[in-house]
């Protein structure tokens, strides 16, 4: 069963002079196991939207259901929320306990799981994020390096075995190797847990590489949604919105302008290279 967002509208400070509608009539579905990327420039409503997915914020109108649980309903919300794991931008928002082990156990413990199940899940989560259990279990989360903190925070969510994993800018502030590691971890979660992923990111290249479906938000409405090929092949359109398309898409768009007959739908280096070698072969024949 999916997450279904229906005609979702959200207004901050409704009724006051400062009322601001952050989301307008947004509808979409996150299917089981799907990877949905959400893009849009700062202030387009991305953060507000993902907080609706587990009921941290409630719609002003419209409805969000998680596997049929209506998030507007207080009792159903708790059940729905348990299915959605939410990773915030900075790990510093959630790390609090004396040891890494205890911190990761916070979520599973709140789910009232039996002790041996909690232990099993923590081992699994630590393995998935690449933290050595022996080395890190008893360390204080506050002594860790930035990258290790992020892994611990991720493990804390993954140990809850969410059916849907929602990530808000999980790569912000990381160096290139750190970014790669996070992408690989997310792939690992999907393989092992079979969870669906909803990821908000400014990095179009990362979204292009992993997403099954991309949603473009603009001024609180869904401007466009579709496969990465559909979204990213229109490089100019994204540029106008202040979004930087994947590098290969930008190169392809420039080459087309300069008269190189490239087909549409190119947004990865590999596809671009293939297309270019085709053209080269073709023109050599001529």
């Amino acid at each position: 069963m999916p997450i279904v967002v229906e005609k979702l509208t959200y207004t901050y400070q409704a009724g006051s002079v400062n009322a601001f509608t952050a989301l307008k009539d947004v509808s979409f579905t996150v299917n089981d196991g799907e990877f949905v990327g959400i893009i849009g420039h700062t202030g387009c409503g991305k953060s507000t939207l993902i907080q609706q997915l587990n009921g941290l914020m409630l719609p002003s109108s419209g409805r969000v259901t998680v596997d049929g649980f209506d998030m507007n309903d207080k009792k159903q919300r708790a059940k729905g929320r348990a299915l959605v794991g939410m990773v915030f931008q900075y790990p510093d928002y959630q790390l609090f306990d004396e040891t890494v082990y205890k911190d990761i156990s916070f979520g599973p413990r709140n789910m009232k799981l039996p002790e041996e199940e909690i232990a099993r899940r923590i081992s699994e989560a630590m393995r998935l994020v690449g933290l050595d259990e022996k080395e890190f279990s008893d360390k204080s989360p506050f002594e860790l390096s930035g990258g290790e903190k992020r892994r611990t925070a991720l493990a804390g969510i993954v140990a809850m075995y969410p059916k849907y994993l929602v990530l808000d800018e999980p790569m912000a502030g990381l160096d290139p190797s750190g970014r790669k590691a996070v992408i690989e971890m997310i792939e690992g979660f999907r393989k092992t847990l079979g969870c669906a992923v909803v990821m908000v990111s400014h990095s179009m290249d990362d979204i292009a590489r992993s997403a099954d479906k991309v949603i473009v938000l603009r001024d609180g409405t869904i401007y466009k949604s579709g496969t990465p090929a559909e979204i990213f092949s229109e490089a100019e359109e994204l540029n106008e919105m202040g979004l930087e398309p994947p590098f290969a898409a930008r190169v392809a768009s420039r080459l087309r302008k300069q008269g190189v007959p490239l087909p549409g739908g190119i947004y990865t280096n590999e596809a671009l290279a293939d297309a270019l070698s085709g053209i080269k072969g073709g023109s050599a024949d001529a």
Partner: peptide, 14 residues
């Protein structure tokens, strides 16, 4: 920040 932290912990079932 308090608001964000509260949300992060609520999301972990606090």
């Amino acid at each position: 920040e308090a608001d964000k932290i509260m949300k992060a912990q609520l999301a972990r079932g606090a």
